[in-house]
Amino acid sequence: MTALLTFQDVAKSFTLHLRDGVVLPVVGGVSLSVAPGECVVLGGPSGAGKSSLLKMAYGNYRCDGGAILVRDGDTIVDVVCADPRVVLALRARVIAYVSQFLRVIPRVSTLDVVVAAGREGGLSEETARARAKDLLARLNLPERLWGLPPATFSGGEQQRVNIARGLIADRPLLLLDEPTASLDAQNRAVVAELVREKLAAGAGVLGIFHDSEMRDAVATRIVDVTRFAPQARAA
């Protein structure tokens, strides 16, 4: 098997115990895969379960059934049933996840936030620091902000810090959930270039991009998730 990521007949629903146990089906019968060098973009209206698929691949959401296989070197891990410690190891070595939102760590400077993400991804302190500076500069984040914690930054600035965090290490599988939602055209172009560099280096991407320009710039394939709509919607 050469795919970096494979969904096999994955199903997901939410059971809301505080709402009399109502079951909200999200997706069913999801089968798709991402090969090295491929950027698979999830399409479909909001609410179709695109973000949920990324969160399941990251181990952040549980699945009702099926398997989500992630390649870690010579071994294959099923994220659906893996031990938490194995999922954490995958996140350190294999899977990068970039959401729209930066979860801020109090008091830590922007540069250190990005360096820490590189260190967690296995880079040396020196390499992480050099790459962090390079990425923040390419993403046009003014150097005067690097020493400040990102808590007070604008949405677009926080998003660029988040992208730098996600892309700094050499993780082979990138899960990108609207990473360019609040960026201007110039910075979107930078992100598209960064993603293409990762693809050229053999990484695989599963992403959500509502912006059609961004999608056209990076997508190698589009998967419409409405085809994974659960058959019978519960009342």
Partner: peptide, 10 residues
Amino acid sequence: LTDRVLDDPE
């Protein structure tokens, strides 16, 4: 896993 239990509690 902490984030799984907090984001998708069973």
